[in-house]
Lab assay of single mutants.
Amino acid sequence: ALNRGDKVRIKRTESYWYGDVGTVASVEKSGILYPVIVRFDRVNYNGFSGSASGVNTNNFAENELELVQAAA
């Protein structure tokens, strides 16, 4: 299972961040479909780089994520 702070690569092909590595911000335990919230260094097309207006978190299912580096 994934944990907060883990570095993960995104495998959801239609995602803006496909192939990117993000950090797990939190994992919901309530049984929702996309329980893993991942935070990225770059914002998506809703904002400009360096601006706070873009979105830099997204929810994924565990099977859409590949663990790159476990949290220390």
Rank of each mutant, 00 (worst) to 15 (best):
37 I>Q: 12
20 D>N: 06
54 G>D: 06
2 L>M: 05
31 G>D: 13
50 G>V: 07
23 T>D: 03
19 G>C: 09
23 T>W: 08
38 V>A: 00
34 Y>V: 03
30 S>F: 07
37 I>L: 13
7 K>R: 11
1 A>Q: 14
11 K>G: 04
28 E>R: 07
32 I>K: 09
45 Y>V: 15
69 Q>W: 12
16 Y>V: 05
53 S>Q: 13
18 Y>K: 02
71 A>Y: 13
59 N>I: 05
5 G>K: 03
32 I>M: 12
33 L>A: 14
36 V>C: 02
42 R>D: 07
32 I>S: 14
70 A>Y: 12
41 D>F: 07
9 R>K: 11
34 Y>N: 07
64 E>Q: 02
60 F>Q: 01
20 D>S: 07
12 R>G: 02
56 N>I: 07
13 T>G: 05
30 S>E: 13
16 Y>H: 05
50 G>Q: 08
57 T>S: 08
67 L>Y: 04
26 S>T: 07
68 V>C: 05
40 F>L: 03
28 E>K: 10
49 S>N: 13
60 F>K: 04
25 A>F: 11
22 G>C: 04
24 V>Q: 00
5 G>E: 02
45 Y>H: 15
29 K>T: 14
8 V>H: 01
21 V>K: 01
40 F>G: 00
71 A>P: 06
69 Q>D: 08
15 S>R: 02
72 A>N: 10
42 R>S: 07
17 W>L: 02
49 S>D: 15
5 G>L: 03
22 G>T: 02
67 L>G: 01
44 N>G: 05
4 R>N: 08
72 A>T: 14
40 F>Y: 02
69 Q>H: 10
12 R>E: 04
18 Y>A: 04
27 V>F: 14
19 G>K: 04
27 V>P: 00
18 Y>M: 03
30 S>C: 07
2 L>W: 06
47 G>A: 07
14 E>V: 14
10 I>G: 01
37 I>F: 07
30 S>R: 09
7 K>P: 02
59 N>K: 07
59 N>F: 07
11 K>N: 09
17 W>H: 03
72 A>C: 13
40 F>C: 02
71 A>D: 09
70 A>V: 12
31 G>A: 12
4 R>W: 04
64 E>T: 02
28 E>S: 11
43 V>Q: 05
16 Y>E: 06
12 R>Y: 04
36 V>S: 00
26 S>E: 10
22 G>H: 01
23 T>A: 03
32 I>F: 10
2 L>C: 08
37 I>A: 10
61 A>F: 05
24 V>R: 15
69 Q>K: 08
57 T>P: 04
52 A>D: 15
53 S>W: 08
39 R>L: 15
56 N>R: 07
17 W>K: 00
65 L>S: 03
15 S>N: 03
20 D>V: 09
70 A>W: 07
70 A>H: 10
40 F>P: 00
8 V>M: 01
62 E>Q: 09
24 V>I: 08
66 E>S: 04
27 V>A: 02
70 A>C: 09
64 E>S: 00
12 R>A: 07
7 K>S: 06
65 L>T: 11
35 P>F: 14
21 V>F: 04
50 G>S: 08
1 A>F: 11
48 F>K: 06
12 R>K: 09
24 V>A: 00
10 I>C: 13
68 V>H: 02
16 Y>L: 05
51 S>C: 14
58 N>S: 15
56 N>C: 15
43 V>W: 15
51 S>R: 01
